[in-house]
Write a protein that binds this DNA or RNA. Structure first.
Lengths: 308, 308
DNA sequence: CATTTACTTTACAAAAACCGTACAGAGTGG
DNA sequence: CCACTCTGTACGGTTTTTGTAAAGTAAATG
């Protein structure tokens, strides 16, 4: 095989993007602690391998949780992952460190299997492992989002029972909220409020939005599902929110959604950006625009919108 | 294995976070009582092991319950744990307000305050503090249960907004699920299924039931709220549940509840005990008895019923 | 060839920890 | 009521650790 996980192919800028490190810090880590030893081009620029990137991402997460880079640098990947699980409160016994890529897809399949058998514990375990291994953002994007979508579809087609869908919601919610609690947030950071309007009982979309915002450094407040528009407005105002995220899965009743939007908009004194996402939002573009809201169709979309 | 429970790896800041001690106090304990003897880095910074952290957390809990650190410091972990269990268990005696009970009440008030200001972070913090201080079961009984009840009442009286109730649900749920995940459960233990029937959107009662069962050593599956009776039946059957817990907060519609009960009962092949709790259950005694279900009115009630 | 991106080295600065010492409130025994 | 112990907290001055910046050079890119 030409490209295994040790083939050096990534230039720094990619690594910076994927790990969230700054160039200076990355070089400092290499110089001072020998955290990774990237190959070089003949001109002397660094070339990192997939496993380098994985290790760096892992290390970064561990340091954000309070571990000191000096100690961590002496540990192999597996131990760092183990430590991280422990300190984040995500526990498991064995730590097979299967370096990233296909991991997400495999996790999703394992989850679907667990859901089929209603094996909550297995589902939980699979999710937690993936969460630690991948980190919050990739986990949300490449595991939770596809999983939720798939479950939604199967449920819609009658291939999944209501309990199974419920079990999924409960378990995913649990893992995600643990993850969210672990993300650091400055007290001075802008506030993001995530919720779901009345009639919308599917929470996970809003939770994903919350995760995306939190990962982007916002202070996020997740208010749960099925909330009247004016209530959301009250919360957003009181909390001085700088943005609001709504998730709409089924656009069952456009008129009802419009009512909610109206009460939300009229309750918002200052003009606060409202991001609307979810499957259902796609069919409501007109409505969304009419209210001056913004439609987003992916988690990265949320992230980029929040960069203002 | 590179990292067992005696490998020194945790820097102070993590220990402080996990134990709730202050830096000064921790050092004082080490200096004066030799409570733990952390390893050092080259530069002289402390490095604690997993078992150090465990011992410190234990000691802190014990001191908060009134034991003196001087005495405790001479005891091995197991004895401290024993002592702690003894003193916490004493609570059920008619003794007036032990420090722990005062703490519970104070926590509830602090939570209500936080809820009023929609300060999710403060709410979360107060709950977590109380959870580690009191341990899972007393926490559920003397903090969460009263809190949920109070919030329910205020909400009913219109003294709380819907958002505030939602925020409470979300936050409590998060803390509780973290707690539940921490409780050990044997794979061979009997299974308890907790849920809420259709139309019942208030989750926390069922979660409390799940916590009580988990603390009693059962393997619990929490299925979430608003589930049709037959779906609960399917899950219970498939999972070989040995008991089912339902929570009914508002008995809005007795006829509807009866329908749910019917579909649940008819879906259960074997005769599985069904425990019904919550405010609403009190007004449905007749209905509950007619189906051969059991009414419970407190968490300790659940525990005692599950001892069979 | 000009502009952008990276590299190295050196230096600085802030945070986090360290230590010793001291102080204050609660409880205890005389 | 007065010492005295036990315990938690606080201050002030150092050292370690870690992140960031500056300056000058080299490589890549279009």
């Amino acid at each position: 095989m030409a490209t295994d996980t040790n083939t050096p192919i990534f230039p720094v800028r990619i690594v910076l993007k994927r790990t969230g490190l700054s160039a200076e810090l990355l070089r400092a880590w290499e110089r001072r602690y020998g955290v990774v030893a990237p190959a070089r081009t003949k001109g002397g620029q660094r070339l990192y391998s997939e496993s380098d990137v994985g290790r760096l991402a892992l290390l970064r997460r561990a340091t954000l949780h309070g571990h000191s880079i000096g100690r961590l640098s002496e540990l192999p990947d597996a131990d760092v992952a183990g430590l991280l699980e422990e300190t984040v409160g995500l526990r498991s016994d064995a730590t097979e460190t299967t370096p990233a890529e296909g991991a997400a897809e495999r996790t999703v399949n394992r989850c679907l299997e667990a859901i089929h058998w209603m094996d909550g514990a297995a589902l939980d375990l699979a999710l937690r492992r993936a969460a630690v291994l991948l980190g919050p953002v990739p986990f949300a994007e490449s595991v939770v989002a596809p999983l939720v979508k798939e479950v939604g579809e199967r449920w819609h087609q009658g291939r999944l029972r209501i309990v199974q869908e419920h079990l999924t919601t409960v378990t995913v919610r649990q893992v995600m909220s643990g993850l969210l609690a672990g993300l650091p947030s400055e007290p001075t950071a802008p506030v993001f409020v995530a919720a779901t309007t009345s009639g919308q009982h599917h929470e996970l979309g809003a939770m994903l939005a919350a995760a995306a915002a939190a990962a982007a450094g916002w202070r996020t407040i997740y208010l749960g599902s099925d909330l009247p528009g004016d209530e959301i407005a009250v919360a957003a105002t009181q909390l001085h929110a700088r943005a609001i995220g709504l998730s709409i899965v089924f656009p069952i009743d456009e008129a009802a959604t419009e009512r909610e939007f109206t009460s939300l908009a009229s309750g918002l004194g200052a003009r606060i950006p409202v991001l609307v996402g979810g499957e259902g939002a796609r069919q409501l573009t007109g409505l969304i625009n009419r209210f001056g809201f913004t439609q987003v169709d992916s988690l990265s979309g949320i992230r980029s919108h929040l960069s203002d």
